[in-house]
């Protein structure tokens, strides 16, 4: 072996494009090709912007009552009509987006943080850690979720924050199980052994290598879970266990107007439509994300 070491292989490099493509950019590209997903994304962005700029977008104060304008049908003055206290429904929907979306995001973030931490520990360390955490998840999953949420709120007291905690808790096992199964497969990958053979510590391997490579299903599930959380919070509010006056969210609007369903259907239709549209947006976006991030769907 007197020949000087290994000549470089120019061919393989030249075939590569100059643009650096990261796995995330690839996913974004295939996401943008999906028209339905983009529609979903637009709906979600529309509602997020609406929530952020609510104080400037509302045509009236959302709590301003006017008994002379009770239960008015949609008109040029009140685009979506008024409710039984003469409050402008459009303003209430715009302001209600704040609570509904905020609650959705906070719940899901909380569930992801707690669920992923537990799930990663269970998946990586296995043995008794796994047994304890997995059984905990099983116990939580044994209850119907909305029943469990009602029980938690009943213990903590009816309040928006408590509703939020309840929804977060019932979503924890979904994320925990999801990431646990992913970690179980990722930790057998050769680059994990390779990282170990470099002398990396457990914590570093967990957070630098295993967690980022296990996140894709969580991102998809997270988007879909925001939709579910919005419905669940609306349900709790409808039952009077969530937002309390003078706060307003879409579920509470439905509850407030249920006795006027025949008399003034717009009081229920429009908040219901808002819920439906937001949930649809998140679901379409979630489906698109799943297709974009799933390596098996790549073509």
């Amino acid at each position: 072996m007197t020949t000087p070491a290994a000549s470089p292989q120019p061919h393989s490099l030249e075939m590569q494009s100059e643009i650096v493509t990261s796995p995330w950019k690839d996913a974004w590209r295939s996401f943008t090709k999906n028209k339905v997903a983009i529609v979903g994304l637009c709906i979600v962005i529309f509602f997020i912007l609406m929530a952020i700029f609510a104080p400037w977008l509302m045509p009236y104060d959302y709590n301003k009552t006017s008994l002379t304008e009770r239960l008015q049908a949609p008109s040029s003055q009140h685009w979506l009509g008024t409710d039984d206290f003469g409050r402008d429904i459009l303003s209430r929907i715009i302001y209600g987006a704040r609570i509904s979306l905020w609650v959705g995001f906070i719940c899901v973030s909380g569930s992801i943080v707690v669920g992923c931490t537990l799930g990663v520990l269970a998946g990586y360390y296995g043995k008794w850690v796994d047994i304890i955490i997995s059984r905990l998840f099983d116990i939580l999953l044994a209850f119907p979720s909305i029943l469990l949420a009602i029980a938690i709120v009943a213990i903590l007291g009816p309040d928006l924050t408590n509703a939020l905690i309840a929804i977060a808790v019932i979503n924890v096992p979904n994320f925990g199980r999801l990431i646990r199964s992913k970690v179980l497969s990722v930790k057998e990958e050769e680059y994990i052994t390779s990282a170990k053979s470099i002398g990396m510590s457990d914590a570093r391997i967990l957070f630098r290598h295993i967690l980022p490579n296990s996140m894709t299903p969580v991102i998809v599930q997270g988007t879909l879970a925001v939709a579910t959380a919005i419905i669940e919070v609306a349900a709790l509010s409808f039952l009077g266990l969530g937002a309390q006056s003078p706060d307003v969210d879409w579920g509470k609007m439905l509850a407030d107007s249920k006795q006027y369903l025949v008399q003034a259907p717009w009081t229920m239709i429009f908040p219901g439509l808002a819920i439906m549209l937001t949930v649809l947006g998140f679901n379409l976006m979630g489906d698109g994300l799943r297709d974009a991030l799933d390596p098996n769907m790549k073509n």
């Binding site: 050769e190 390779s194 470099i198 002398g199």
Partner: peptide, 18 residues
């Protein structure tokens, strides 16, 4: 590990974090 004794593996395609 990695300092005094290092190791390389069979599958170069999967030995790096993607």
């Amino acid at each position: 590990r990695g300092d005094e004794i290092a190791m390389i593996f069979q599958e170069p395609m999967t030995s790096l974090n993607p």
